Amino acid sequence: MTPHELGRSRYVSLTTFRRDGTGVATPVWVVSDGQELYVWTRSDSWKVKRIRNNSRVLVTPCDVRGRTAPDAPTAEGTARLLDETGLRLVRRLLTRKYGWQFRIVDWPAAIVRLGKRPHTGIAVKLAED
């Protein structure tokens, strides 16, 4: 499955790996731009901590609850955490794809935190087949 095909999915299950190799799947919003997928999450989330230790990830289309179809394709890739410039790109891409739904989640959090948005952008480069 290509980044573009996965990026068209409403949600993907992003599986990150604990130090002992156990996978932990989380449904997330996703968008593609070029050859990478982009995800947005809280900086203090466990998936960010797991990616710092192990950049290997699996990506599978899913529903809002993280349920994947039995025949859903899974792609393996490598994740990297983005800096502030990368995070701005991810926010712009997610706003373009999800519109008001993304804004309703992102902006109130910034107001409550006095302008601080403790989020991290994640870029996923899929492995070549």
Rank of each mutant, 00 (worst) to 15 (best):
V48H: 09
E84K: 09
P118E: 14
I111M: 06
R56E: 10
T2D: 11
L58N: 14
S45D: 09
R65C: 03
A109F: 01
L58S: 12
R67E: 04
E84S: 09
K97A: 02
T68N: 12
T16H: 10
S43L: 07
K97C: 02
Y38V: 03
V24I: 10
A75V: 10
A69D: 11
R91C: 01
L89C: 03
R52H: 11
R52M: 08
P70S: 07
L93P: 01
T95K: 00
V59E: 11
A109Q: 05
T78N: 06
A123F: 10
E76C: 08
L94N: 00
G115L: 05
G121N: 11
V90D: 00
Y11F: 15
I111G: 01
R91S: 01
P108F: 01
T74F: 02
H4F: 03
E84N: 07
A110Q: 13
V31H: 01
R19F: 01
T22V: 12
P118Y: 15
R18M: 05
R117F: 02
K49W: 03
L94A: 01
V124G: 08
Y98Q: 00
Q35G: 14
G99D: 00
T41P: 07
L93E: 03
P73F: 05
W29E: 01
R65H: 12
G23C: 06
I104T: 04
